[in-house]
Nucleic acid binder design. Structure first.
Length: 533
RNA sequence: GCGGCUAUAGUUCAGCGGCAGAACGCCUGACUGUGGCUCAGGAUGUCGUGGGUUCGAUCCCCACUAGCCGCCCCA
């Protein structure tokens, strides 16, 4: 039998490592509480369109890195596939495919010995459902970039064949109409901000007139290639400050307060060597103007750049600024700067953020090239970076998202937030300090003989109820074995033999000092407590 | 999604076209109410999975899977 393993990109966290995780989470709760944040827990999956609208349809996260599935009572993949093939099989015999015409979804078929093979060409946005029927799906690297995938289906010959002519797009309509009416597309959350804002809107939290300050700790999911500190189920700590403008949600003081909180948080975890990097990407109207100017400036020079940057120049010009390619540095230096496109309001906002940070002594660097990948960011964007992380040097990132609530159909609710990769944060802590030692119990109780097992449990219960961490042995163990195990698991061993049971005076030995004493049962807890940590 | 490296005992790893190895850990005993240190003995395993070459493959070849590192992307 195949031994089951944790799926690719996921992992188990075991003691004593989980002690470190608990410590970080406890520090989070302690520090964030001082800033009067409350905890929010949103569902781990949401309607797919939440992320499409919030994070951005064209971002890689949404277009290819989400765990998405159809959830619906009437969805039946096999039935659907069979019906689709029966309805369309005749098309393949005479139809020739014009790939340059960029149909929404097309397919061609070929009769093999006793079977049909169909190839579907489909753009992901319109026909992921169609692709979900295929035996195999792979990316098709079309030069035009029009098609996102090819699906391949092989089935036994079907005798009954209906004739269907070839109006484009009909196919999908039929498929959805017949089988997907009650189904819903769901997605494991790839980040938590969209979910928090959804909850803010749904529960009308803005109606309180107060600023909402919410933090979360939880797993997120992204279907990326695993790497050091990057997992498909990864953990994030994040916080959001959001509210109606009348509550002061647009104030630069909010930005500075969040940044100051993060600086204090990292300090409290004894993480040194971090750098706060800041920029402003401008208002919702500044940003498109700048992107347009970038495109214009890139058009004549992009051919001289690296292939990566040529592609970015087309798909997401802002990312060109993030390029690490030294060969392209000279060109990048000549590109327009975002700072020149900020309106007066945005400039003043950014200046006020900086002034507040200066006032409380939080150090920062301004990086005019810091852009963030998510569509919803406006004005302040930031990262905390750390040298110990190699190429992936960002410890956390975030920014202001003044228009997100409205993008999701909610009221005007400017906000600022961040998300921190817990997996990577733990990595930096682990590289900075010694491996955590296993936690030792206060005492190991060794019943000497199976007749003493029951009294040993009673003793353990007694001590545990007084707050002691107790490991209970077993009377079947020989005494030597009890000592060996006890030495690994606890600071003290309590011997419970016939004598001890009869007299109520227990034999206690401290493993560190080797000192052995007799202690009345009633004094045990106090003695263990004072024997130190 | 792309590229490089890797996969052998619980762990870290060595190894070789012909008997499967070390260290640490584990178990037993020296020591029948005393751990750590020491000594003696013992058990580990589909050599990642599947196929190929070969008289013979853990070793060579291919594919797959997984991990690490980098790229892409990104909180």
């Amino acid at each position: 039998m195949t031994v089951l393993k944790a799926v690719r990109g996921t992992r188990d966290l075991l003691p004593p490592e989980t002690e470190l995780w608990n410590r970080v989470e406890a520090t989070t709760r302690r520090v964030f509480a001082r800033y009067n944040f409350g905890e929010i827990r949103t569902p781990i999956f949401e309607d797919t369109s939440l992320f499409a609208r919030g994070v951005g349809e064209e971002t890689d996260i949404v277009s290819k890195e989400m765990y998405t599935w159809e959830d619906g009572e009437r969805f039946d993949r096999d039935l659907l596939r069979d019906k689709w093939l029966r309805e369309n099989i005749a098309r393949f015999e005479s139809w020739s495919l014009d790939r340059t015409a960029a149909p929404k979804a097309d397919f061609e078929g070929q009769q093999m010995d006793g079977s049909w093979e169909f190839v579907i060409f489909a753009s992901q946005t319109t026909s992921s459902q169609l692709l979900s029927l295929a035996d195999e799906v792979r990316e098709w690297n079309a030069a035009s970039g029009r098609f996102r995938g090819i699906g391949r289906i092989v089935i036994p010959t079907i005798s009954e064949a209906a004739v269907v002519t070839t109006p484009e797009g009909i196919l999908i309509e039929k498929v959805s109409g017949a089988f997907h009416k009650s189904s819903q597309s769901l997605t494991l959350r790839p980040e938590n901000t969209a979910g928090v804002v959804r909850a803010y809107i749904e529960h009308k939290l803005g109606e309180s007139g107060l600023l909402q300050k919410l933090f979360y700790i939880g797993p997120q999911f992204r279907r990326e290639r695993p790497q050091k500190g990057r997992y498909r189920q990864f953990w994030q700590i994040g916080a959001e400050v959001i509210g109606p403008p009348s509550a002061g949600s647009e104030s630069p003081l909010r930005d500075a307060e969040v940044l100051e909180m993060l600086a204090s948080f990292l300090d409290e975890l004894n993480i040194t060597g971090w750098t706060l990097v800041l920029n402003s990407v401008g208002s919702a109207t500044d940003r498109p103007k700048y992107v347009a100017a970038l495109r214009e400036a890139l058009a004549p020079v992009k051919d001289q750049m690296s292939p990566d940057n040529q592609r970015r120049a087309e798909t997401n010009p802002l990312r060109v600024l993030d390029s690490k390619d030294p060969a392209d540095e000279a060109i990048i230096a000549t590109l327009p700067k975002i700072a020149d496109f900020l309106d007066d309001e945005s400039k003043a906002h950014f200046a006020a953020v900086l002034a507040a940070l200066d006032a409380c002594g939080v150090q920062y660097e301004i990086n005019p090239r810091l852009v963030r990948g998510l569509d919803y960011y406006t004005r302040t964007t930031f990262e905390f970076t750390h040298d110990g992380l190699g190429a992936q040097n960002a410890l956390l990132g975030g920014g202001r998202y003044d228009g997100l609530s409205e993008m999701l159909g909610g009221p005007k609710a400017p906000g600022i937030g961040f998300a921190m990769g817990l997996d990577r944060l733990i990595l930096t802590l682990q590289s900075a300090e010694a491996e955590p030692a296993p936690v030792l119990a206060d005492a190991f109780i060794a019943p000497l003989g199976e007749a003493l097992n029951a009294p040993a449990l009673a003793l353990a219960r007694d001590l545990r109820r007084q707050g002691m961490r107790i490991e209970l042995g077993d009377g079947a163990f020989r005494i030597r074995k009890s000592f060996e195990i006890g030495n690994k698991l606890a600071r003290n061993i309590i011997l419970l033999g016939e004598d001890e049971h009869a007299s109520g005076i227990l034999t206690v030995k401290n493993f560190a000092t080797g000192e052995q004493t007799k202690i009345p049962r009633g004094d045990l807890a106090q003695a263990l407590r004072s024997s130190g940590n």
